[in-house]
Design a protein around this nucleic acid. Structure first.
Lengths: 336, 336
DNA sequence: TTGAAAGCGGTACCAC
DNA sequence: GTGGTACCGCTTTCAA
């Protein structure tokens, strides 16, 4: 049978109250009994049952992480960095894959609430924030990561997506491109990137390639391919593409090569995220880097400080993207 | 305040015992009271506190998953498939990234035991199985996945690694290659793959390229590059490489291209796992496919049946690999 | 400084 | 059928 606080108490000739105090390091205990009890705990290899203490209102040291899609390296790398920080701080993660499905999202939310997680980190879709607001009303600590919602009062660690799009456009234009296509999903973050992108274009008196449309496909590689197909079939094929994540960019590159376009000579491509695939594919992908490590750490630190009640006010931490140049982009050669 | 079983009982004018029976669908209850109670539960939006019932010995419906490295697509895809099946069966996953670190492994194991997870799925290193054996003694359900330990009596869902290596060798030899290099880590699974590989070589009277050595580097891409560097610097450069996972293969391809080798014309490469990166990189990677989806489902089903006490005996489910041909391999052109 | 006892929110046995 | 009640293992107040 598992050893409980009673076993320790009996063995040490003290009450369970006393044992509890030495476990939690509080209350007045003589140095002598404290040592004695500690000794017995070691001897019996006693591990407090966290379930029992959670029932008394203590924390479960467990946080729910909702992720839309594990198989996207951006999210798995983000999850890894969050988990890393959690491990340092002694928190575990219940990870849920939501497939961008609102129903799954709210199922998980209520299920994990039943399991008394200390808080939630949402990296998920949640285009509809009603559900989230409800949770906030219920006073569960929540932090949103990698997704910004300027219109809501939620704690968040987000990327400056506008700036990301801005950087991408700026660079492509600097390279001389004027006919540029975008590949994006109809998500808030992507819309922001697009907005930043268009901002620069307008500044320069340029316009987005008219074939632009939001992709629907769930499989990003395929979606990238498909969108590139649309662009390449059009009369005025873009000389450069800005893809709103690395996976989309990979799809674009694949298709471009298949139809005989050289990257970057015939087509420059810039991605977003700077996940591991950016350096795996060929040519190396120029991309807008998200500080994934940093975001993971920040979001974990933020939620824990909220759980511990260390902050009253809501915070929004905005991280800045940066341009990582590799070989998928090149100065446009004027054909004349 | 959260609504408890007492609130429901009071509101429905019954005892908590009755409510409990309704919740768990057991005991004799009149249809009338059952309906009444259910109605009240809905009305009050009552959610049983799983912590409390866990304390009474019921399951937590939570399983610990130990993974060595999230950022390896094989593991993130495996985790995803396990999570998927868990979701269907109403189990959550606490996912832990162990970085192949034995200390982290045992930390997590004991921590999650304190949290009363119903069982463990280990996809982790655990070259040293002492720890695992200890847990088995403690009677915690454990299943090992993607790692076989023929010498231990543990439940497992594993791949036939020997056969994987066998298939790889067979194919390369069929293509006419005779000087073949291997890239592998010193892990049980990799050793098995190598053994299967060598088995075929010997059959054909061939021998592994003498520059073979186990890689040490944690970063698989880099490790692949480094190993390819060793092979290419040697006098008798192999005409084909068998890399024990797709990431290693990607590294090999990168380096090969950088030094001007054409893949597959000058060098054929075959990977292992058939993760998403096999179709992302260029050329598409010929690889030995692991049935990741299937393994995820099997391992989840297996652990749950153990948890439910539906099986007495230990089982070892062996899944079979298959060869997926893409463009990184080619018939050897005899130079004469 | 220590310990008795009242919970926390359920489950399950046993009377009625 | 239904309800009283003793737990599960721990925390916390309060008295001694």
């Amino acid at each position: 049978m598992k050893v409980t606080i009673y076993d320790v108490a009996k063995e040490a000739n003290v009450s369970i109250a006393t044992v509890s105090k030495v476990i939690n390091n509080n209350g007045r205990i003589s140095e002598k009994t404290r040592r004695k009890v500690k000794e017995i705990m070691l001897e019996l290899d006693y591990r407090p049952n966290m379930i029992a203490s959670a029932l008394m209102g203590k924390q479960t040291k467990t946080i729910g992480l909702l992720i839309p899609d594990f198989s996207n390296p951006f999210f798995s790398e983000l999850a890894k960095s969050i988990e890393d920080r959690g491990h340092e701080l002694d928190y575990n993660l219940v990870i849920c894959n939501t497939d961008y499905d609102p129903e799954k999202e709210s199922n998980y939310l209520s299920l994990l609430k039943q399991k008394q997680v200390d808080g939630f980190i949402l990296a998920s879709g949640f285009e509809n924030l009603d559900e989230v607001e409800q949770q906030i009303v219920d006073d569960i600590p929540i932090v949103i990561v990698a997704r910004d919602f300027p219109m809501f009062s939620v704690n968040a660690v987000a990327l400056d997506d506008f700036m990301g799009g801005y950087l991408a456009a700026e660079y492509l234009i600097e390279l001389g491109h004027e006919n540029i296509g975008v590949v994006a999903r109809d998500l808030y973050s992507n819309r922001e990137r697009l907005r930043g992108f268009n901002y620069v274009l307008e500044e320069k008196g340029l316009k987005l390639n008219t074939n632009f449309q939001y992709i629907k496909e769930a499989d990003h590689i395929k979606a990238g391919r498909k969108m590139m197909e649309i662009y390449s079939d059009s009369e005025h094929r873009p000389t450069a593409i800005f893809a709103c994540n690395d996976l989309l960019a990979a799809g674009v590159i694949q298709y471009a090569k298949e139809i005989g376009l050289r990257v970057p000579e015939d087509l420059s491509i810039i991605g977003f995220d700077n996940t591991s695939i950016a350096s795996i594919i060929e040519p190396g992908l120029t991309t807008i880097a998200q500080p994934i490590q940093g975001m993971g750490k920040e979001v974990m630190d933020l939620i824990i400080s909220i759980i511990k009640g260390e902050r009253e006010d809501k915070s929004r931490i905005t991280m800045l993207p940066s341009l990582v140049k590799r070989n998928s982009t090149k100065k446009l050669m004027k054909e004349n």
